[in-house]
């Protein structure tokens, strides 16, 4: 009974909106890192900015569509601002700048200076900006049970949200499929391998990298919207750890693969839930506290990331020969 409850929880994680949000963020990161070789260490910054864009626009009376456009614009502008100084430099500069910029966004977001807009460190409550989104739902009110999973049709943690979140993920997968199988995607892969060679063939490498950065960044921004729809915009919940978890998700599934990010996200959250719930049940009462379980869970994520990168850098779906890591 205890275990069947855990199994239901694990199953729930597979379809959770958060899982979809991470999958989308990882799809964006996959465009950056997997296909183009850009070391974006600030995906959480894109997500947070997108979330702020959507939430603040909604709170100031924008419709859902306009708010989404604002979120997209936030991601695109952020990518452009970061890309201009760094895309002509060596890869690790981009890493340092993106991680720093993501931190700046978070610090500014939680600062008392912009309290009226961002709500400071306590953030923005979900009900302040999700009304428009909830109103779009065509589903009748009530609960629906599919298999062992029961959720409200509408509301914060609802089927409607799940439907939209996974719909967006599916669209993103199709889009990535199309662009990466195209000659455009070929140029990106060429850049990942050796940008000088591609430049010598007459391609404007900077422009391609910028396009990839913006595209992946916009996906990150949308992922941020998805992530915050079922909860609140919390700057401190969207910091470096989030970026690193997105990386873990991507590398788990397999960089430079189409379904890697989606599989990685599902697996990551399912295992993470299994681990924590399992520990809670399996370990005797009082042996570890709830907080400690979270911490042990976090440690295991770190160890998994290390082991993954060392022993199976291509992830679950990847092809070792077409590994996304540079060999230089």
């Amino acid at each position: 009974m205890e275990w069947s409850r855990i199994l239901t929880q694990v199953l729930g994680e597979l379809v959770a909106p958060t899982t979809a949000a991470y999958a989308l963020a990882a799809i964006g990161l996959n465009l950056h890192f997997g296909y183009t070789g850009l070391l974006n260490m600030g995906q959480a910054g894109f997500m947070l900015l997108g979330a702020y864009g959507f939430a603040i626009a909604s709170m100031h009376g924008a419709s859902v569509v306009v708010a989404l456009l604002v979120a997209i614009a936030c991601g695109a502008v952020f990518a452009a601002v970061l890309g201009i100084p760094t895309l002509k430099l060596r890869g690790d500069y981009l890493a340092i700048v993106t991680i720093s910029a993501a931190e700046i966004i978070r610090m500014v977001g939680r600062s008392t200076m912009f309290d009226d807009w961002t709500g400071g460190s306590s953030g923005l409550r979900g009900d302040q900006y999700t009304a428009g989104f909830q109103a779009l739902s065509p589903l009748p009110d009530g609960r629906t049970t599919i298999g062992p999973l029961t959720y409200l049709n509408n509301g914060f943690d609802s089927w409607w949200l799940r439907l939209v979140a996974w719909g967006v993920v599916a669209l993103a997968v199709v889009f990535v499929l199309l662009v990466t199988r195209s000659p455009w995607g070929r140029v990106l892969k060429g850049i990942r391998e050796d940008e000088d060679a591609v430049r010598a063939l007459g391609k404007n490498v900077f422009a391609y990298k910028m396009q990839a950065l913006v595209l992946g960044g916009v996906m990150g921004a949308l992922a941020g919207v998805l992530y915050t729809l079922p909860r609140s915009v919390q700057p401190d919940g969207m910091g470096r750890s989030m970026t690193f978890f997105v990386w873990t998700v991507l590398l788990l599934g397999g960089a430079a693969t189409l379904f890697g990010p989606v599989l990685g996200s599902m697996l990551f959250f399912a295992l993470y839930m299994l681990l924590r719930a399992g520990m809670r049940v399996a370990l005797p009462d009082g042996f570890v506290s709830a907080t400690q379980i979270e911490q042990i869970g976090g440690m295991l994520v770190g160890v998994t990331l290390m082991a993954l990168v060392i022993f199976r850098p291509q992830g679950i779906l990847g092809n070792r020969k077409e590994l996304a890591f540079d060999v230089r």
């Binding site: 958060t18 991470y22 460190s121 909860r231 609140s232 919390q234 919940g237 969207m238 910091g239 750890s241």
Partner: peptide, 14 residues
């Protein structure tokens, strides 16, 4: 305020 069950939420940095 409601902290999420997602790892990103619990491992909040500050």
């Amino acid at each position: 305020s409601a902290s999420s069950a997602a790892p990103g939420g619990t491992a909040a940095d500050d």
